[in-house]
Amino acid sequence: MIKIGLTGSIGMGKSTSAKLFADAGIPVNDADAVVHDLYSGDAVALVEAAFPGTTADGKVDRQELSRKLAGDPSGFKRLEAIVHPLVRERERAFLERHGKAGADMVVLDIPLLFETGAENRLDKIVVVSCDPQIQRQRVLARPGMTEEKFNMILSRQTPDAEKRARADYVIDTSRSIDAAREQVKEIVADLRRKPKADGTESGEP
């Protein structure tokens, strides 16, 4: 089973690209969705203990947590120490489930793939990218987003040019969704053409 890591800086179109892989029939483990679930479950008590006052009604208040982190960026390390092991547990269960089901490939949607050294447990890396001006327009159009917050997020992410240089494939989302969909189809087809260790091609019996 080929483990594909999907990543990209904020506003590059990673979530859309993940959906396109899912539309192509490839199982996708969405780290953002996992974190969202953890923030109303397993992570709540741990986050409250580390960042008092950031939970309410059994859920993490993401806005309040974001506000605290903006005031004390050192908190990101504490938060990552809580969240990343829980995300990895879910990821392992996902891989086991689809391995048993016989999937020939899966996508692990990992926002901070390079930043956390996740490339070491992946077979292929797909980076989603677009024109920086388009990225800026997309991000600043989000509710509650400011230039300051955008720049803080970018400062914690590996530069886009470096990500592209380290990728096996790059999806350019500067154009239409249809164009991105074609790129995803080409990546899937290319991976299924790659010879496996036994000399057959992926997808062959």
Rank of each mutant, 00 (worst) to 15 (best):
A56K: 12
G8T: 01
R193C: 14
L154F: 07
Y39P: 02
P85H: 03
S17I: 14
E162Y: 10
R92A: 12
L20A: 01
S9V: 15
K77Y: 12
V106W: 01
L122N: 04
R90D: 10
N120Q: 12
E48F: 02
G8P: 05
H98G: 04
E91H: 08
R121Y: 04
Q133G: 08
A22E: 09
D198R: 13
S15V: 12
Y169V: 08
V184S: 03
G8K: 01
R92K: 13
A31V: 10
V44K: 00
G53V: 03
S15Y: 03
H84V: 09
E119F: 11
V47P: 00
R136M: 08
S174K: 10
A70R: 09
A22D: 05
L86W: 03
K163I: 04
D109V: 05
L112Q: 08
L95K: 09
I110H: 06
Q183R: 02
V87C: 03
L112M: 14
H84R: 13
L140W: 15
L6T: 03
E89F: 10
A43N: 02
A24H: 09
R166Y: 05
K149V: 14
V128Y: 06
L69V: 09
R164Q: 13
P73C: 02
V34K: 15
T116K: 13
L79E: 05
P143N: 01
A24I: 08
K124T: 09
P85T: 03
K19H: 05
A56S: 10
A167K: 01
T158H: 10
L69M: 13
A70H: 07
